[in-house]
Design a protein around this nucleic acid. Structure first.
Lengths: 409, 409
DNA sequence: GGTACTTTCTTCGTCACTCGAACGAACGCG
DNA sequence: CGCGTTCGTTCGAGTGACGAAGAAAGTACC
C-alpha cells in the first residue's frame, strides 16, 4: 500500500479506479440511473460504462432495479445504489455524553446508543464507553465487522491536520498523550477518521440537511461552546492549524466579561449555553434560584414568554455580529445554525437576520441563506459517519473487498 | 473541444495529460531535476518518465541542462524548466490607473506599461487603454502572439464565478453591460482570466512572495478600499457569490462614521487611504490645509514623526480587530499585508500583532504568521499573470501547440 | 588500471483499459 | 407487423504505463 506523499499519478489501474469512483458517485447521487444515461453524462463509451457497472455490481455496491421509461426505443435498465451494502459507525464525543450511531450508506441511522460521560476529564473512561457502545451497535444489528466501511469520530476540540487523533492540549489537557484514532483503530481494526464536531455538523448539513446539493456551507453550533465548521468545495476546511471555525472566541463586545481563553467579550461568554441559562435565571426568575434549562428557554420562547424572547433576541443580535463578519470574509452559500437552542427557528432567525443586515454588505447577504438545522440531535454523530462515506465514495478501495451483498429483508 | 460540465473522466489520452501535467509542475517547482529523481518521487516507471519528458522537451517547455552529481553511478541529466518558453500578460485595473505587465513563466516582468485612468466611470476608455498598453508590451519585446499563453486581468470589484467578466453593478455601476473577459478575448484572441484584485494579490504572494511553498494564505490590500483574498489549498477562494474577502466592510466600531455601503463603522471608513490621509491632515498639520499623501505618512513614520506613528498605530489596532476574526474563522497559515502603507513594516506589524493578540485565540495565532508584502507595486498585475500560469501548469493543453522554442540570448 | 558494482536512461514486449463499430434485444409507433 | 430508435453487449484495435533487460556512464576498491 502506498503511503504518505500521495503522488497523484495515474496508470491503467488508476484510470479504472478514477472512472469507477466517478460512476459510483453518480449512481449514489442519482439513486437510480441507466447505463445509457451515465454514458451520456460522463462521455464515457457505453462499453466502458457497462464494464464498470458490472464491476460495481459484482462487489455489491449497486444492482439492477428494473426498467425505466423508454425514450422511444428499448427501455433502459436502471441501476440503483445499494444503501445497505455496507455500514458505517459514527461517534460523537460531546462535552458530557458519548453517542454512537450505526448508519447505512445513505446516512440513515440503523441503531444508536449513547451514555452520559465526562469526556473532558476522563479519556480512559470515554474510550471504554465508546468501545462498549460501538460493540453494542454492531451486536444489535448482527453486523459483521467486514461489512463496516470504517468509523468516524467527532471530537470537541480542534483537530490538527497532521495528527487528527490528538486533542488540543489547551482545550482538553487531560487527553494529552492519547490518540483517539490510534486507540480505536487498534481495537476495531478498521479505518478511523477524526474531526472536530462543528466541522462534522457542517458536513452533516451539507449531505443530509439544508446544504444538500451545495458545496459551500458554514455551520454554527450553539451549545456550551460556540463552534463553526466550513465546507468549502465539498470538503471540510480545517485551516492551516486545524483551528478554523473558532467563531466562539470572536470578540464582539470589548467591554464584555472575561473568557476562559484569556480574552474579553468573546461570543461564547455572551451566548454560550452557560450565559443564556444564567441570563434566563435573572430574567425568568423561575422558581427561586434554579436556573432554567435550554429546553425550557426554547419552550418559553415558543409559548410567548417575554423573558425567553428577550434572551433569544439578544442571542440573535450578538450572533449577528459574528455572522456578518463571516459573510463578508467567506461568503458561504448557506449558514446553518445547529444546537438545541436553534430549534426556536424564526424566533432566532429574525433578530439574527436583522442584526446581520445592519453589518454585512448587501451583496454578501443576497447570496447567503441563513437557516436553522432540521437534523436531529444525532446530526454530529451522523456527520462523523458521513466523513467515512465521503472518503469511501471517493476511493472505492475503502469499501471492504469481495463482500457478498447481503440480501435485504 | 469539450465544454461545460467538465466530467472528470479519464481515458488513455487523459491519463497522459494528467501525468504530463504532474511532471511539468514538478519540474517547474524544482527548477532542475533528473528523470530518475522524478521517477522516484512520482512512482512512475522510468520509461514513462522518459517518454513524457521527451514530449515536454519537444514542445519547448523543458530542456536538458547538463549533468547532476552522481549518487554512486552514472550521473543524472538534469531537466530544467524553460521559463522563457512562453509569455503571459497581466493587467491590473486599479481605481485610478491601468497597469500591464508581460511576464515569463516564472513571474518575472519583461516589460511593463501603465497609464492613469479613471477606471470607475469610464469603461470604454479603460478598455481602450488596456488594448493599447498590451499591444505596446508585445511590440516592445517583439513577442509574437503565438508565444503568449493568455491574459489575466485584476479588477477592483467582486467577481461572480459564473460570469467573471462582469463587474458588480453595486461597486462599478458604469460597467453595467460590459464584459471584460469577452471584450479582451475578442481583441487578442487568447484565453482571458479575470479575478478580483485582492484575490490576485493573494495569489501573487502565494507564488512569489511570503507564501511561497504554502497552500493557505490570506492577503489584505490596504489602499483606497480594503480588500482581502484567500488562497485555500492553492486556489483562489471566491465564495458562493464571489464576494469572499470583503474585509473592508466588517463593522469594527458601531459608533463609527457611515460608509458608502450603507453601514456604519466599516473598517474602510477608519483605515482606508481616505481616512488615513484625512487624519494625517488633522494631526500632522502639514503646510496649511493640503493633506499629506500616503507616501508622506510612510516617510514620516519612518523618520519618527509622532503624528505619523499615531496614525499607523491606529491603523494597526483597527485592522487587528478584523484580522483576529479572520484568524479564528479561517486560521490561515500566513496573513500578508499589501498596499502602499504596508511598506512601513514593523511599525505597522507591532501594533497590529498586539491588537490581534488581545482578540484571537492563542492557538490560532500560534499557527499564523503576519507579515507585510515584499513584492512591489506590480504585485497585482503579476498576480493576474500568475492566474494564467497556474491554469496552464495544470492543463498543459493551454500552452499554445507546436511552438518552436526560442533560443534565448 | 582493471574489475565489480551503481545508477541512469532507453528499448521492447506485455498488459490493462478505453474506444468505436457492429450486433442483437427490446420497445414505440403507425 | 414492420420500421426506426434506444439500450446494452461483444469484439478487435489503439494507446499508454509497466517491467525486464540492456546499454551507457560513473564510482569504488583492490
Amino acid at each position: 500500500m502506498k503511503v504518505g506523499t500521495a503522488a497523484l499519478t495515474v496508470d491503467a489501474a488508476g484510470m479504472r479506479a478514477q472512472n469507477s469512483s466517478l460512476l459510483l458517485n453518480m449512481i449514489w447521487r442519482e439513486r437510480q440511473i441507466s447505463r445509457a444515461e451515465i454514458a451520456r453524462r460522463t462521455e464515457l463509451s457505453p462499453s466502458t460504462v457497462s464494464a464498470i457497472v458490472a464491476d460495481l455490481e459484482h462487489s455489491g455496491l449497486v444492482r439492477s432495479i428494473g426498467a425505466g421509461v423508454s425514450r422511444g426505443g428499448r427501455r433502459p435498465t436502471l441501476i440503483g445504489f445499494r444503501d445497505d451494502a455496507f455500514n458505517i459507525i459514527g461517534v460523537e464525543l460531546g462535552a458530557t455524553h458519548v453517542t454512537v450511531v450505526l448508519t447505512d450508506l445513505r446516512g440513515r441511522v440503523r441503531t444508536t446508543r449513547n451514555s452520559p460521560q465526562q469526556v473532558r476529564n476522563d479519556p480512559e473512561g470515554t474510550l471504554k464507553a465508546v468501545r462498549a457502545l460501538v460493540q453494542e451497535c454492531l451486536d444489535a444489528e448482527r453486523v459483521p465487522k467486514r461489512s463496516v466501511v470504517g468509523m468516524g469520530v467527532a471530537v470537541p476540540s480542534p483537530v490538527h491536520p497532521s495528527a487528527p487523533g490528538k486533542m488540543s492540549p489547551l482545550i482538553l489537557p487531560a487527553w494529552r498523550g492519547y490518540d483517539v484514532q490510534d486507540a480505536l483503530r487498534g481495537t476495531f481494526d478498521m479505518p478511523v477518521f477524526v474531526d472536530n464536531d462543528a466541522n462534522l455538523g457542517a458536513l452533516s448539513e451539507c449531505y443530509w440537511g439544508a446544504g444538500v446539493g451545495g458545496e459551500d456551507l458554514t455551520y454554527i453550533k450553539l451549545a456550551t461552546g460556540i463552534g463553526s465548521g466550513h465546507i468549502i468545495h465539498g470538503d471540510v476546511y480545517r485551516g492551516a492549524g486545524g483551528t478554523a471555525g473558532e467563531i466562539g472566541h470572536i470578540a464582539v463586545d470589548s467591554a464584555g466579561p472575561p473568557c476562559l481563553c484569556g480574552l474579553r467579550g468573546c461570543l461564547v461568554t455572551l451566548i454560550g449555553s452557560g450565559a443564556l441559562v444564567e441570563r434566563a435565571r435573572e430574567l425568568m426568575g423561575s422558581k427561586g434560584r434554579k436556573a432554567p434549562t435550554i429546553r425550557e428557554i426554547v419552550e418559553g420562547a415558543r409559548a410567548g414568554d417575554p423573558a425567553a424572547r428577550t434572551i433569544i433576541d439578544g442571542l440573535g443580535q450578538y450572533l449577528g455580529i459574528a455572522v456578518a463578519g463571516l459573510l463578508n470574509l467567506l461568503n458561504p452559500a448557506i449558514v446553518v445554525l445547529g444546537g438545541e437552542i436553534s430549534s426556536v427557528g424564526d424566533l432566532l432567525l429574525d433578530p439574527l437576520r436583522a442584526s446581520v443586515r445592519k453589518r454585512a454588505l448587501s451583496t454578501s447577504m443576497a447570496e447567503t441563506r441563513i437557516v436553522t438545522s432540521a437534523l436531529g440531535d444525532k446530526a454530529i454523530a451522523v456527520g462523523a459517519a458521513t466523513l467515512v462515506l465521503q472518503a469511501a465514495l471517493r476511493s472505492r478501495a475503502l469499501f471492504p473487498p469481495q463482500h457478498v451483498g447481503r440480501t435485504p429483508a
